[in-house]
Design a protein around this nucleic acid. Structure first.
Length: 924
RNA sequence: GCCCAGGUGGCGAAAUUGGUAGACGCACUACUUUGAGGUGGUAGCGCCCGAAAGGGUGUGCUGGUUCGAAUCCAGUCUUGGGCACCA
């Protein structure tokens, strides 16, 4: 009886499916546990080898928890909206729904190969109307809400309206426009459209304007990633900044709660830090600097500030105000136009044109200092010192007020700027400043600082803030680096907004009109004026959609005219939602995936509660994780769920990178030179398929046959008779020929070996290049493990003999270590622990059931197929004395359900005994 | 540029957290099983000197703290991830 993994895995795969072994009920007397993977985007290249890493880890943990007696929810689905499918459609004319369905089928096949315990009845797909109906529904809830700063939570917009009617907006200053103030009477007299405009500036999901990277030639908006040196990555066309109407989520209102929530969840410190930095809370002050009247507009009254505008800056260090040697404003700043002097006009315009071509990323990463003087001066509010105002790309319009007061002696970037443009530096920190480098200390005693001379900096911060508040030229201010989340895309393959525009006012669709289905299009080309492809469908855009009843009842007066009539100017929103819309709430849908009445039944979401364990990559640290946390908080605020943090514990799996191999072609020849000798020639490196390279040694015959014998006539310049390839670690990608298909490995070694090998590679959290070397060792372990149970000739050799002390010690040591390793997600050492126990039992020639069976059950999470098989072989053989070889196992109860309590009651207790025994041994 | 993480034999790594560095596995070498190939088994295996016994040295680099550092601190180099329209 040999280890025929193909037969075994095939058998159990089918049996589990037939038995519905992984079906999870929403009702159970067992405690619940929710293990969630970040669902994959079903890309055309199939499941990449990094995906299984996280999936296997979560699968092991889910199975382990099930062993421990929990009712475990462990679902899988697809984040199916997104740009690549749309780009594929543009390039190949295949509808994204079609290519996505194909990709999903492909993914599913690959996943099934690996023996996961997903409950496939709960599969979700964010691009299906049944799913995105609820994404749209949640959007409507966000649209119908505002963030009440007094209660610190989202509330219905009707609450706000009632408040406006009673007292205007004096207690609810407008988050979108600070200067907006009105009384109850004024509100009452606003035109309907004005009321809607005002409300829009309060909504949690709102429409506004924002700058985007616009490529005229491609007719699309581009990500910063897709812009390189001012031109598009695709095609190399010029890219400029363009102001477009955009939807946003008012995530900034949740900034404090997003920070506080971090204290209640079990994320890594690094993850918390990244989110904290992203939110970027800082406290300081906003200070107005008067602008000195310039020559071109002489002040008649002669008094300062009479007609002069003020430049408002945000600073965290008001204590350094006497060290301000210049001001810098963002090139997009509103004041630029009005303050530049005639002499500087040309230079400023040239500079702004240059900045327009640059992405935000480039602007921040730029080492070269650039900027231009406006010709204007601001006045220090305390000593009226004249301060030159500059423009530079390192100040971003979106952060703070888009203007800074520069203190070169205390800020490195300001210092470099000052040195570069020969601006004299005022030293206010005495010996802390050496003239060469800025020093951002807070310890100095201030000098050259007027009334602050002799004051320690830390004290001075408050003194200055109090003073400017007294003088009415500024105020204490908490600032966040985080901006509201841009929530619209000018694309096709995403959720349509359930919004209708009438005379420039946005109205929500009625709930019963959902889902607003994505229409079929013939062309995926963008619409006019930066609108999405949907704008090319006038019939769809103007189709008759009734307005939301909630609006008629919320005392926002009706719109006049019969909306059912054609020609009322109503049109549907043509933008679509971004990729993160569907993924912001999907963990809830898994709980109740077929519900047609609600996104998730409240009783069900109460039962499953938060995700106990969430596994996914750090690349989502600040995107998806923050958005889904915010959506969860909003749903909580509005009373739809009982908790405001989605994920209790987060484990970040590392990224599996590709290990690329290169050959070096001597320029202009058909000769390839080995890596060690390549410096002696002029060469071009060429990616070569990792699958025809053994380690670093090229299989030259395979190379000649590679790519339809493109290199059939290749000649090689060898070192030590070998052709050695160059190695580089890169992202895994088809074009780099560094992908290793998991299917091939499963075919060759079996799913159990593949699972254990992926874990054996190293800690789950760590990134590492994929390397198939070593998989043999894991496979060998499984064969060796099998031989503890079965002999090739004799068949099953498990006995009912009493175990010896030495054997028990091996077992208990193994149980202790494997349990600890599994609990702390150290699956690599978990696998090692299995290997050690197997080696020791082999040395002891131990084939006793009392030892082997517990070990077997412990193996279920790691290698479910072989464990189930052996478990049933023993059961049949030892209990009925019937040789199980070739026996039909149908009808045997699965270890996956019936037998778990056995493990729970019998072996866990022995495990704690083992701990005591181990402690005793150490002492004695 | 800014934020986060990593760097230990030829290779993947371990060291349960400041206490014998390199468990476990790969590769390699020798022997062994087999008609042969594969498989299985035994032993060796950080580097340097040495036949051996033994000695020296060793966790990216430079310093520091400590009786003691892969582990803590400062600086530095380097690789990977993120930086808001990739998901």
């Amino acid at each position: 009886m040999e280890y025929n993994f193909r037969k075994i895995e095939q058998y159990w795969k089918e049996k589990w499916q037939a038995d519905g072994a992984y079906k999870v009920s929403n009702q159970s007397s067992r405690p619940k546990y929710y293990v969630l993977d970040m669902f994959p985007y079903p890309s055309g290249v199939g499941l990449h080898v990094g995906h299984p890493l996280g999936f296997i880890a979560s699968d092991i943990y889910a199975r382990y928890k099930r062993l421990k007696g929990f009712n475990v929810l462990h679902p899988m689905g697809y984040d199916a909206f997104g740009l690549p499918a749309e780009q594929f459609a543009i390039d190949h004319g295949v509808h994204p729904a079609v290519s996505t369905a194909q990709n999903i089928a492909n993914f599913r096949g690959q996943l099934d190969n690996i023996g996961f315990c997903f409950d496939w009845d709960r599969e979700i797909n964010t691009s299906k109307p049944e799913y995105y109906k609820w994404t749209q529904w949640i959007f409507l809830q966000l649209f119908d809400s505002f963030f009440n700063r007094h209660t610190n939570r989202a509330e219905r917009i009707s609450v706000l309206i009632a408040n406006f009617e009673k007292e205007g907006n004096k207690n609810h200053p407008c988050p979108g426009d600070n200067s907006l103030q009105f009384t109850a009477d004024e509100w009452e007299n606003f035109a309907d459209s004005k009321k809607m405009d005002v409300l829009m500036q309060y909504r949690v999901a709102y429409c506004g304007y924002g700058e985007v990277n616009w490529c005229e030639a491609l007719g699309t908006v581009l990500a910063n990633d897709e812009v390189i040196n001012g031109v598009s990555e695709r095609g190399g066309f010029p890219v400029i900044k363009k102001r477009l109407r955009q939807w946003y989520l008012r995530i900034t209102e949740y900034a404090d709660r997003l920070l506080q929530g971090l204290e209640t969840v079990d994320f890594s410190d690094a993850m918390k830090e990244m989110q904290t930095n992203w939110i970027g809370k800082s406290s300081g002050a906003e200070i107005d600097f008067q602008i000195k009247e310039s020559a071109k507009a002489p002040s008649l009254g002669g008094g300062l500030g009479e007609a002069g505008a003020a430049l408002r800056v945000y600073t965290t260090r008001p204590d350094t105000i006497f060290g301000v040697d210049f001001m810098v404003i963002a090139p997009e700043h509103d004041l630029v136009e009005s303050i530049i002097t005639a002499a500087q006009k040309k230079a400023v315009e040239e500079y702004i044109a240059y900045v327009k071509s640059r992405s935000e990323r480039e602007r921040m990463a730029e080492k070269k200092i650039s900027g231009v003087f406006t010709g204007a001066y601001a006045l220090n509010p305390f000593n009226k010192k004249e301060i030159p105002i500059w423009i530079s790309e390192y100040v971003l319009a979106g952060y703070g007020t888009g203007a800074i007061m520069a203190v070169p002696c205390g800020d490195e970037r300001d210092h470099k700027f000052a040195k570069h443009f020969n601006i004299p530096v005022t030293n206010i920190i005495g010996s802390y400043y050496n003239g060469e480098e800025a020093n951002s200390t807070k310890e100095a005693i201030l000098e050259n600082s007027d009334f602050l001379n002799g004051t320690p900096m830390k004290k001075a911060i408050d003194i200055v803030i109090n003073k400017i508040e007294e003088l009415g030229i500024g105020k204490r201010k908490v600032n966040y680096k985080m901006r509201d989340a841009a929530f619209s895309r000018q694309r096709y393959w995403g959720e349509p907004f359930p919004v209708k525009w009438i005379d420039g006012v946005a109205y929500p669709l009625d709930e019963n009109e959902l889902p607003l289905e994505l229409p079929k299009v013939d062309s995926y080309k963008p619409g006019p004026e930066g609108e999405g492809p949907l704008a090319n469908l006038p019939k769809w855009v103007h189709k008759d959609v009734k307005l939301a009843k909630q609006f008629e009842s919320s005392k926002v007066p009706s719109l006049g005219g019969d909306l059912g009539e054609a020609g009322n100017g109503a049109s549907l929103e043509t933008n679509t939602m971004p990729g993160y819309a569907g993924s912001s709430w999907y963990f809830l849908r898994y709980m109740d995936p077929h519900n047609t009445k609600a996104f998730c039944d409240r009783n069900v979401s109460d039962y499953w509660n938060q995700v106990d364990l969430y596994i996914g990559g750090t690349e989502h640290a600040v995107g998806h994780l923050l958005y889904s946390r915010m959506w969860t908080k909003a749903l909580f605020d509005l009373g739809y769920i009982a908790y405001e943090e989605p994920y209790k514990k987060l484990v970040n799996q590392g990224m599996i990178q590709g290990s690329s191999r290169f050959v070096y072609r001597v320029r202009g020849t058909n000769k390839f030179v080995s890596a060690g000798l390549k410096d002696q020639y002029e060469t071009n490196p060429l990616h070569v398929d990792v699958n025809i390279v053994d380690g670093v040694e090229l299989d030259m015959e395979s190379f000649k046959k590679w790519r339809n014998a493109e290199y059939a006539n290749a000649e090689f310049i060898l070192e030590n008779n070998k052709y050695i390839c160059g190695v580089e670690v890169e992202k895994m990608s088809k074009s780099k020929f560094n992908t290793v298909n998991p299917d091939m490995l499963v075919e060759k070694y079996g799913a159990d070996t593949f699972r254990m090998y992926e874990m054996f590679l190293g800690p789950v959290e760590m990134s590492k290049p994929w390397d198939t070397k070593g998989i043999e060792g894991v496979h060998r372990f499984l064969k060796k493990f099998w031989r503890l149970f079965a002999d090739e000739i004799k068949g099953l050799i498990v006995t009912d003999e009493q175990p010896t002390a030495a054997e028990l010690k091996v077992l208990h040591k193994a149980i202790k270590r494997i349990e600890e390793d599994t609990e702390r997600f150290s699956f690599n050492t978990g696998v090692s622990s299995f290997m050690i126990a197997t080696n020791e039992l082999t040395d002891l020639k131990c084939h006793k059931r009392a030892i082997l069976e517990p070990l077997l059950i412990l193996l279920v999470p790691y290698a479910p197929h072989i464990a189930e098989e052996l478990y049933h072989q023993i059961k049949l053989s030892v209990s009925s004395k019937v040789s199980p070889v070739g026996e039909d196992l149908k009808g045997a109860a699965s270890v996956l359900d019936a037998s778990y309590p056995v493990f729970e009651e019998k072996y866990v207790r022995e495990s704690s005994k083992a701990k005591n025994a181990a402690a005793y041994v150490e002492l004695g």
